[in-house]
């Protein structure tokens, strides 16, 4: 696997703005003048409310959208070139995969590895070995030959990470990786990501609206709500910063545009809940939702 020299900039987002065109109306501005730099081997968390521009920034980094202004470089290349050169791995939200698909975890990884190989080429020993290596790296060997539909949330997430690793990326982008996974599963996920970073020298970007997922283990945090509100170490992530970032989200729920910033801060602070960053009644409180990613069955 590849490693980047220390202190090299792996992701360079320079003054990027983006707006979605709307027929017959003014464009919907998603991002304004956002600048973020991620050093090689760094773990960055991008935090923000729904509709704050996180997914748009992810699509821009993947080269699926083009900035209206500004520039993005991934490993020194434009995103679409970096993607073509397999520099970037992407772990989608697990709910996006078709779980009824009749394939095993190993076949899901092989599918990613073999993408781009000539149509006439059969399955090579090299592909099989790489799939086994990736599955072993994420601790998925025990359930590698089970159908994807029978896996728990945490197990499936490991398979999706192995899929991304099968492309031998230098940068790993993860979209809402802890959604639907219980606290113990989230902890194991954090340990896995740390190990991957150490072993492979990966630059890792985690996009989430979940403060806990972001704060645990990230070197730096970028708080995004159309503009960049904060970009520094997680230690500086004060309730006031979170209240400012999540203001729109909370206001939508409480129906008070001028809501008390202190109340927002209480909801958003990581110390507020044992299981989640957001307390009961807060818009991101998922404590009542049944978790699919049970600790049982994880290996």
């Amino acid at each position: 696997m590849h490693t980047e020299p220390a202190n090299e900039i792996a992701i360079d987002i320079r003054d990027v703005s983006f707006a979605y065109p709307r027929s017959g109306g003014t464009p919907l501005v998603a991002l304004e003048h956002v600048s973020i730099q991620v050093r090689a081997g760094e773990r960055l968390g991008i935090l923000g409310p729904n509709g704050g521009g996180k997914s748009t920034l992810l699509k821009l980094m993947l080269g699926l959208l083009t900035p209206g202004s500004g520039e993005i470089l991934i490993c020194g290349r434009p995103p679409h070139e970096a993607r073509r050169a397999r520099r970037v791995g992407y772990v989608p939200q697990r709910v996006e995969a078709e779980l009824a698909f009749p394939i095993s975890a190993r076949e899901a990884v092989l599918m990613a590895i073999e993408l781009g190989t000539p149509p006439w080429a059969g399955r090579s020993r090299g592909s099989r070995d790489l799939a086994s290596e990736c599955l072993e790296r994420v601790g998925a060997n025990a359930f590698a030959d089970r159908p994807v539909g029978s896996l728990s949330g945490g197990q499936l997430q490991r398979v999706m990470i192995a899929r991304a690793l099968g492309r031998r990326p230098r940068v790993l982008l993860m979209d809402e990786p802890t959604v639907g996974i219980d606290p113990s599963g989230q902890q194991r996920f954090g340990e896995l990501v740390s190990r991957l970073r150490t072993e492979l020298g990966l630059t890792i970007v985690i996009v989430s609206h979940d403060v806990r997922a972001i704060a645990a283990g990230c070197d730096r945090v970028a708080c995004l709500s159309r503009t960049l509100h904060y970009h520094d170490a997680p230690a500086g992530l004060t309730p006031a910063v979170l209240a400012e970032v999540f203001k729109h989200d909370l206001a939508a729920v409480f129906g008070d545009v001028h809501m008390d910033a202190h109340r927002a801060a209480e909801c958003a602070t990581p110390a507020h809940s044992h299981t989640h960053a957001h307390g009961p009644g807060c818009p991101h409180d998922h404590s009542t939702r049944p978790h699919e990613g049970s600790a049982e069955g994880e290996t």
Binding site: L62, V88, E98
Partner: peptide, 23 residues
């Protein structure tokens, strides 16, 4: 179907993931 089996399967399994992988 045989020639394009790999991108078709990747698209069918996980559309956003496939797009991110260049499909």
């Amino acid at each position: 179907a045989t020639w394009f089996r790999r991108p078709v399967l990747a698209w069918a399994f996980d559309e956003s993931g496939a797009e991110a992988m260049g499909v």
